[in-house]
Simulated assay, not measured.
Amino acid sequence: MEKIRAGVLGATGNVGQRFIEMLSKHPWFELTSLAASDRSAGKRYGDAANWRLDSKIPQDAAGMTIVPVDTEKVNADIVFSALPADLAKTVEPEFAKAGFVVASNASAMRMMKDIPLVIPEVNPEHLGLIDVQQDERNWDGYIITNPNCTTIMMTVTLKPLMKFGIERIYISSMQAISGAGYDGVASMAILDNVIPYIEKEEEKVETETRKLLGEFDGGKIIDAPFEVSASCHRVMVIDGHTEAIWVEMSDDPFPEEVKEAFMSFDPGLSDLPTEPNPVIEVKEEKDRPQPRMDRNIGGGMTVSVGRIRPGIRYICMGHNTIRGAAGASVLNAELLKKMGKL
């Protein structure tokens, strides 16, 4: 099978490195362009990137020359964007207008009415917005986004609970420091500490969840009718966001019914290379899930849940830079290919 040419925008950063790790041996995609800031452009990737992941830098990527973030310089059919939000807001539309498919992890475009915000297991039908987007903006390409890392983990677990009639959701997150980037939280700030505020995080969780679980009527997304209340906190964990979730549902299910809904959840995407099996893993131990022990299940793409109690209350946890970032965009791209949109 001929592989699809793939580029990474913002290739030297934390999420950019995850993209390269996941794409370097992907069966469907071939890395053909690595783009970064002007200070890195022209250098070998192995020389310019301060590789921070546990895995070794892929040799094919290490030898590639970094190009500017420019539609004329990037050689690809699809670009995976790890750009900062302020830059993504202007750059991603330029790439879509020039005919590229843009699979974005950035927050800049997520809530725009004609931009699909997608988790393949949750709302693949929202990809219908691509036609709306191209018609309204007169673009040859298009942009598809994945949600905030905290939102992704929670919403994957909410999808199988929709049948019980969700009325209100409360979430308290304990978020890993890698979510802020390598230099995002000073060691003197996080050591021996919990930081009870992450800028704009609560707003993202509260709005993105309703769009994801909303209805596509053929022209727009009608947000889900329930309310989401979030409190987000940074904790001294390297990778893996843990979330305490309370869900009020009209059917008032028993914990065993919720557990069964989690365990039987099968979105039918097992043919996608990055799709984990299971999507949701129920932990029976009374003190699980835990980031250090559970974040790498399913290659970092499985969401773990545990402590399902009356109410309904439970804990969910997932790898924030894999399932919550780069892996989410890669899975979206795989879905696009499956649906014939690449």
Rank of each mutant, 00 (worst) to 15 (best):
M317Q: 10
R295D: 02
E284A: 12
R295E: 06
R313G: 05
R295Y: 11
E285S: 12
V303A: 14
C316T: 11
G299H: 04
D287Q: 09
R288A: 09
I308E: 00
D287C: 06
M317S: 02
I297C: 07
P289Y: 03
G298V: 07
I315R: 07
R307T: 08
K283N: 08
G306I: 02
Y314S: 06
K286A: 13
C316R: 01
R313I: 01
R288F: 05
Y314M: 04
R307V: 07
C316G: 01
R288H: 12
G299D: 10
G298R: 08
Y314W: 05
R292M: 14
V303T: 15
K283C: 12
G306W: 00
S304Q: 15
G299S: 08
R313T: 11
I308Q: 00
T302Q: 10
V305R: 02
G299R: 09
R307S: 08
N296M: 15
G311E: 10
E284N: 09
I308F: 01
N296Y: 14
I315P: 00
M293I: 15
M293R: 15
P310S: 13
D287G: 03
G306S: 04
R288I: 04
M317E: 08
P291A: 10
K286S: 14
Q290V: 13
I312A: 03
K283E: 12
Q290H: 10
P291V: 05
G300N: 03
M317A: 03
V305W: 05
R288E: 12
P291G: 06
T302G: 06
S304H: 10
P289D: 06
M317D: 00
P289F: 02
K286M: 14
I312G: 02
K286W: 14
R307L: 07
M293E: 15
I312M: 10
V303H: 07
M293A: 14
E284C: 00
I315D: 07
D287N: 14
I315L: 15
K283W: 02
I315Y: 09
M301I: 02
I308C: 03
G298M: 09
E284H: 10
G300V: 06
R309H: 03
I312P: 07
E284S: 13
R313W: 07
P289M: 05
G300R: 06
P291R: 04
G299C: 08
V305C: 08
P310M: 05
T302S: 12
M317P: 00
E284R: 10
D287L: 09
T302N: 09
R292T: 14
V305D: 05
R295F: 06
V305Y: 03
E284M: 11
G300T: 04
R313A: 05
M301V: 01
G306E: 02
R288M: 08
Q290N: 13
M317H: 05
G298K: 09
T302I: 09
V305N: 02
R288D: 02
D287F: 12
R292I: 13
I315M: 14
K283G: 03
R307G: 00
P289S: 02
V303Q: 05
S304L: 14
R309N: 10
R309W: 00
